[in-house]
Amino acid sequence: MSLRDDARAEGLRLLDWWANHLIDEARGGFLGEIDADDQPVPEAPKGVILNTRLLWFFSAMADWSGDVRALDLAHRAAAYIRERFLDGEHGGLYWLLDAAGQPLDSKKQAYSQAFAIYAFAEYYHATRDAAALAFARDLQALTEARFWDEAQGGYIEALSRDWLPLSDQRLSEKDVAAPKTMNTHLHVLEAYTRLHAVASCGGTEACLRRVLSVMLERFTGRDGHLRLFFDMDWTDRTTRVSYGHDIEASWLIWEAAEVLGDETLRTQVRPVVLALAESARREGLNAEGALAYETSHDGHLDRDGEWWGQAEALIGFVNAWQMTDDTTWMEAADKVWLYTKAQYGAGGANEWTWYAASAEREKIYKAGIWKCPYHNGRAMIELDRRLRA
């Protein structure tokens, strides 16, 4: 089968897996974790990233596949987020709940507010629910009011429940403790792009142009790689190259420019986009078709790519092919897909594994705080739409 046909089949198969494994019948919403052996972990905490990404996935699947299950699960996800993750007193979404749905970590990450905007914009697109659109717009206004640094620009990483500074703003332990990060700005860009695409207005355009400008001016380097971490005054604290983020940013930046419909802007970002894609292909992609995770500035290459990097490489390489008509980009995408099927379980009866089968790494959960169907599910939808067009 071709990559185009495979993408359609794989997207529907992923929908089956996530629809059949995550529902929390006892406590509502979705389970917080499915372990590496496909067993539920009923007492696992419930993260806002998993839940907002589930809302995005089921909403996008409802529109793409027409499957009634997806729409029902999108309704379930939207209701649970508004009922449990929303801070009714201070606004914004909590970071983490316990298994019963009570706040466990009440900090407010800009990253998580962005994913809620992204998810509710997609939910609105699938349902035309005016309340969903209002929720997304309210979260955008809150993000602008609370996280934007009026003095020096950019979005602050995190604040406390009542919007006070935090000593530790990191998304995860592996991140540099920096108050402004590429990762958060990339997903604010992604969220604002989708909101502007489904319900454009002057406010959504202004916000999208602002975050895109910051991405281009601060986070895209002349070497074809993203700068990852900054202090408040924009002192660069980047210590590594992230190939997965390079290729993901390439197509998300291009998508933002296309949604804005500005030909001058498209001309401006085109070389930036292709430089990011080319650096990921040239430095991160090996002969077998695996996209490496990252490399440090001392030259150490982490060759064991995570599942999400392979998914983003598929979209990014196809996007570069669409931009250039250069078939070597499609050859790269085909190579990544063959490797992903051979090493990550794509095309089988299960969710993709975190690492390749050949990687000497401990097995990690199939679903959880950081493992969800957003990357690979989105890749299948994007590939099907792009290749059929």
Rank of each mutant, 00 (worst) to 15 (best):
A99R: 04
D87R: 06
P103W: 02
T143A: 15
D138L: 06
Q109R: 08
Q102M: 05
Y118C: 03
W95A: 02
R76A: 09
K107L: 06
E83F: 01
G91I: 04
Y118G: 03
F115S: 10
A131K: 13
R53G: 08
Y94C: 00
L104G: 06
L93S: 02
E144L: 13
I117H: 06
W148C: 13
A116P: 03
G88K: 08
V68R: 15
A141G: 11
I117Q: 09
T143G: 11
R146C: 08
L139M: 14
A116D: 02
S59W: 11
A79V: 12
F135I: 11
W64I: 11
F85Q: 00
K108V: 10
K107I: 10
G88P: 03
A132P: 01
R53M: 10
D129R: 12
R53H: 07
A131R: 14
L86N: 05
G88W: 03
D138C: 07
L133G: 03
V68E: 15
R84N: 00
D67A: 13
R69C: 10
R69W: 05
R146P: 02
S59M: 12
D72W: 09
D87W: 03
L86M: 11
R69A: 09
A131D: 15
Y80E: 09
F120N: 06
Y111L: 03
A145E: 14
Q102K: 10
A141S: 14
A70M: 10
W64A: 14
S112A: 15
F135P: 04
S65W: 09
Q109G: 07
T127M: 11
E83Y: 01
A134E: 15
A119M: 07
Q109L: 15
L54G: 14
A119C: 07
F115K: 10
Y111W: 07
A126P: 06
T143R: 03
A145G: 11
A78N: 02
R53A: 08
L71Q: 14
A126Q: 07
A78P: 02
F58K: 01
A121W: 08
Y111G: 05
E122S: 14
A70C: 10
A121G: 14
Q140W: 05
E83V: 02
R69D: 11
R146L: 04
H75E: 14
L54E: 13
F135Y: 14
A136S: 13
E144C: 07
D72I: 10
W64N: 07
H125E: 12
A132V: 04
Q109A: 07
A119Q: 06
L54M: 14
A70D: 09
R146H: 12
K108G: 10
I81C: 02
W148S: 13
G66Q: 10
F147D: 06
D129H: 09
A100R: 08
W148A: 15
D98N: 08
F147G: 04
D149N: 12
E150L: 13
E89S: 11
D63M: 14
D138V: 03
Y94A: 01
E144D: 15
Y80M: 06
F58R: 02
Y124D: 07
F120H: 08
A110N: 05
A132I: 04
Y124Q: 09
L104D: 05
F135L: 13
D105E: 07
R82Y: 00
K107W: 02
A121V: 11
S112G: 15
S59D: 11
Q102R: 12
